[in-house]
Design a protein around this nucleic acid. Structure first.
Lengths: 110, 110
DNA sequence: TTTATTCATCGTTAAATTGCAATAAATAAA
DNA sequence: TTTATTTATTGCAATTTAACGATGAATAAA
């Protein structure tokens, strides 16, 4: 149905999946990489840099902002975007805590 | 269009996004967590544990296996699944390298 | 051999996602 | 004030995704 049954999963499982899902698009990765490189930029810069239409970039920015990994402040007619350090670190830690668990060795495998 | 324009992004951007996308569903997170806990189990165990239909679990297992983060070996009529340590570490490192880049401080933000 | 068990695959449905043109809203510039 | 710039929002089409019933394939058990 395209409808994830979130109610049968834990809060933590849903949160981690949501974070990964937002990172799961190359345009959003590209936006984050550009922001890491230039620190701050406006929406139009990303349209030029990435090569998707303005409404498409705007939609990706919205998802990243909703997740809390970036922030944007109005600056005249344009909007200045940048990494949200607190959000970034929270997400980094969440992914790290999951991926850095002790994993069974090869011998434990079937 | 529901059709990601992968051709305008770099190999690295597409690879990282693909990894994150596969992790971006709570059922797949739950499968990985269960495998971390019990080391090995069969498909039916996950159906009981998670509460989705068998074809649904089977589909999620296939995506995780295609990504290389788990492996499965036929064992009679059942299939024994476990974490693929090499794949897991590769993915962990990929996420870590991205998320652990130096991020600008709060003062650099708009 | 017949039956039961286990899992993958197929086909289908409902919903979400991606992308963009058109447009609205808000501010800056002329 | 009028015009230009910049971004968000709306509405739409094409595609993908999530979920599951039905079924097939393969092996174990009776």
């Amino acid at each position: 149905m395209g409808l994830t049954k979130t109610e049968i999963f834990t809060e933590g499982q849903n949160r981690l999946a949501k974070v990964a899902k937002v990172l799961g698009h190359p345009a959003r990765i590209a936006i984050l990489q550009h922001l890491l490189k230039v620190q701050t930029c406006i929406c139009g810069d990303l349209v030029d840099e990435i090569g998707l239409a303005q409404p498409t970039i705007s939609q990706h920015l919205k998802e990243l902002k909703t997740l809390g990994i970036i922030q944007g402040t109005i600056e005249g007619t344009s909007v200045c975007y940048c990494i949200n350090p607190q959000g970034w670190e929270e997400i980094r830690d969440m992914l790290w805590n999951f991926m850095n668990q002790a994993i069974p060795g090869n011998n434990a495998c079937c």
